[in-house]
Amino acid sequence: MLSFVKRHQVILASIILSLFSLHLSSLVRKGTGGEVIVRAVLSAVTSPFERTLVRMETKVKGVWGGYIYLVGQRAENENLKKTIYTLTDENNKLKEELSLDSRMKELLKFKEESAVPTLAARIIGMSNFGAGGGWARTLTLDRGSLEGAEVDMPVVSPRGVVGRIIEVTQRTSTVLLLVDPRSNIDVTVQRTRIRSVAEGNGTSLTLKYVRPFDDVQEGDVVTTAGLSGIFPKGLYVGEVTTVERGEDNLFRYIEVKPASDIRKLEEVLIVKEKQNLLSGIERAGKSIP
């Protein structure tokens, strides 16, 4: 027996560790919270690094843009080149500031309209988008429990719902996006008031339990129903893009394109008051073309 264990120790170890992992995943789904310490330690170690990387990326983009612009001007005299470089650099900086200013204005307007306590946060990390592979769809924000972020707080953008916070450390928060396969939210089709559950499928949302005779059409706006206890009623979720007959013939297959294009977002708002958002956000959602 002992010799068998010794001979196959590597295989046995890998099997035991994989079974332990499965056990861990079931514990986490039950919400025992044992992984929080590890997350907190890793977050404390890596979040300054991530913040620096994001800042560096912005600077490198500016310098790189300026350099590329100057390559074609090398043949011209040195003074002109220097002038162009300086102007391009300034132009890039101004463009960056203008873009930041416009985003901030939009966010501020949205914040004022919603009139509930919100917390502006910057996205410092994303997991597995587009061609990045992977299955989880999450964001890392630069705000944590020290700034008042809590688990289950909704995260929104001027375009609509982004997701909800699932993990909080002192300095960072992890947001589960609407399109994550673990995400399920109660929604209403705005035009016909039909209620459904929007489930993430990795790239978009699927409306569940919509019967064949329910009136849902392509282009219909979908908002939060306010039944989950997390998302306030009336937040813009997205727009119906596909309505088909379901495989089981019992329910229809309806796909919803999420309102917020996460890849274009840089800042978001954490809603610090659950279930009590004013109609300003709903208005903001409706005004989206």
């Binding site: 295989i11 890998s14 994989s18 992992s21 995943s25 986490v28 590890v38 890793l42 989880a136 673990r182």
Partner: peptide, 30 residues
């Protein structure tokens, strides 16, 4: 053990269900 830990760290970073990648990596190691 290293495979398990790397999977765990991957899960923590990606916000995935803890244990999903460590399960896969530990078995893949075998």
């Amino acid at each position: 053990l290293l495979s398990f830990v790397l999977g765990y760290v991957d899960d923590v970073f990606s916000g995935a269900i803890i244990g999903s990648t460590s399960f896969a990596l530990a078995l893949t190691f075998g």
